[in-house]
Design a protein around this nucleic acid. Structure first.
Lengths: 244, 244
DNA sequence: CTGTGTTTCATACTGATGTTTGAATATGAA
DNA sequence: TTCATATTCAAACATCAGTATGAAACACAG
């Protein structure tokens, strides 16, 4: 057994070089880890990579957060209070005609996805969670997903004159949500299929406007004539076109 | 440096040796690896887990496929010829009214997602690829994603009277695609938000029917009165936004 | 200054994973 | 049989990741 541990010979250098100006290591780790976790996912992201990017020691994560999962939990918990979500919530809570609220929600959600100043790493974490769930997914859904969806159900239910827990209301809510989420979840597909699409604010506005139009077309039509749609109880028989 | 491929003799059948499924190790590995890769993703899936499940030696993967990526490539390549895709292609190619084709495509795609006999591991691989792309994603997109989307563009473009590469056509195609994909990509979200939703064939039909109705409402409306909507889209002619 | 508690650091340990290797076994032909 | 090839196997190797540890560096009260 050689317990002889090589003592450090000499002082390497003054590390007061870049003290990361008054930013505590803990905060820096949280910031860097957020982006790296969002980029690689929980499992593929390594503590060493995070610590190098944060100019911290490998042991810093264990010291400040216990272990890797502790850091990740903090990152997710922090991302749940992001400003982007507040935009969506306030859009849902405002007092306005339902159609305006729906437009505002769609736009807020899309804006939160692709911002130029802040990267969209909050949502990229969700993408990884959907592919490979960790214990954080339950909290993400119960704290964010379910409440927001519940409000969307109430909004849409009110617009089509059905209770929030009606199947039709839920279908419509998923239709709206799907149109939005595809721009986050299927981003590589989007880029491959539409290479020259630049996610400028103007482009995002156009997309949001389209999604709202696309959705409102059906919602208005359903409200004015619900019986024509709710007929699809079990088997849709032949897909005969409605009167043109 | 080893042989990249075992020799090929035309002797596929030789099961008299072992009654316990003397399926060649190579095929068994492919089969098992498909499910495990779809479940855990490329990185999280381990060769040992695959080999144990396939009752093969750890070295079997390296012997038959060179390395882990070689096995994964074969799995993806094999999944691209799955029967599910053929259903979508044939739905797109059939000679029928455009609205019927759209309904058939939506339904085929949804059916391919959740089947009771066969698990949906082909699409679950796509979910992982979207979260953490591997070299296989490029092939997946160029071989499957882009051609299918191109046909969808032509179909919808024909329905709304715009060229396939018009922005409005693409927006509509994404609206349709998003409504479908959300049921695959956001499955955990779906289950949490709608726990008592059973993916029976009847339920899938109802969903497909709804998505088609939801989408056709806008498409029909746009076709009958395009000018009311194009004020926001950049039709190649007039990019004027400020309508005063 | 000294002492004490906190933070950072270099380093080592443990386990897991992809890969290699060389021997052992099976297979089929001369 | 004997030989050549194909395949399987157990074991080892190399690397990397998460974690642990003890000392050094720091901050600050006394």
């Amino acid at each position: 057994m050689n317990n002889a541990r090589p003592q450090l010979k000499l002082k390497p250098l003054k590390r007061r070089r870049r003290p990361a100006i008054s930013e505590p290591t803990r905060d820096k780790l949280l910031d860097v880890a957020g982006r790296i976790f969002a980029d690689r996912g929980y499992r593929a992201a390594t503590i060493r990579e995070i610590c190098i990017a944060a100019r911290a020691n490998v042991a810093a994560v264990n010291y400040h957060f216990g272990d890797k999962l502790g850091l990740y939990t903090m990152v997710v918990q922090q991302s749940m209070q992001a400003a982007e979500l507040e935009g969506i919530r306030s859009a849902l809570d405002q007092l306005a005609p339902p159609e305006d609220i729906l437009r505002a929600v769609i736009r807020a959600r899309l804006n939160s996805i692709c911002r130029r100043d802040r990267p969209d790493w909050h949502f990229r974490i969700l993408v990884h969670e959907l592919a490979q769930p960790t214990p954080a997914l339950r909290r993400l859904i119960s704290k964010i997903g379910r409440p927001l969806f519940q409000r969307l159900l109430e909004l849409i239910g009110g617009m089509i004159g059905l209770p929030p827990d009606d199947d039709k209301t839920r279908f419509c809510a998923f239709s709206v949500m799907g149109q939005i989420l595809v721009f986050v979840l299927a981003n590589p597909l989007l880029e491959a299929v539409w290479p020259d699409l630049k996610m400028t604010p103007e482009q995002l506005d156009r997309i949001a406007y389209h999604i709202a139009d696309f959705s409102l077309s059906y919602i208005r039509q359903f409200r004015s004539n619900p019986s024509a749609h709710s007929a699809n109880g079990t088997t849709p028989a032949t897909p005969s076109r409605a009167s043109k």
